[in-house]
Write a protein that binds this DNA or RNA. Sequence first.
DNA 1: TGTTTGACCACGG
DNA 2: GCCGTGGCCAAAC
Length: 110
Amino acid sequence: MGNEHYFDWVYAITRRIPPGRVTTYGAIADSLALGSARMVGWALNKCAPFDDIPAHRVINRKGELSGRHHFAPPTRMQELLEQEGVKVVDNRVVDFDRLFWHPAEHLEDL
DNA sequence: TGTTTGACCACGG
DNA sequence: GCCGTGGCCAAAC
């Protein structure tokens, strides 16, 4: 994968998130030590058409599914997570702290 | 070319 | 613990 685009790094990390785990926009931005959380969200928005990127595993720091409106239908994000065993109540991931996946610890795998 | 706007976050009051 | 604010940087207009 060409590293010309910042987006590619975001996609690469996002694809590494194991099923049943979640991470945040800010964590990805920090692990890349480049760009910002806003850009990560924006990059994922651009990747929406590519279904090989598990964007539903990326949520905001409060554990909320802030990006659900960019899925079709908006309930799709929650459905995908629950399919993987992640409980979602009121648009928020249950046990978010426990399910949190640290991108920085897996950068070497890229 | 300047302004506004994001699937955000840390910080200060 | 809830606001406002500033920073981040690329796109759209």
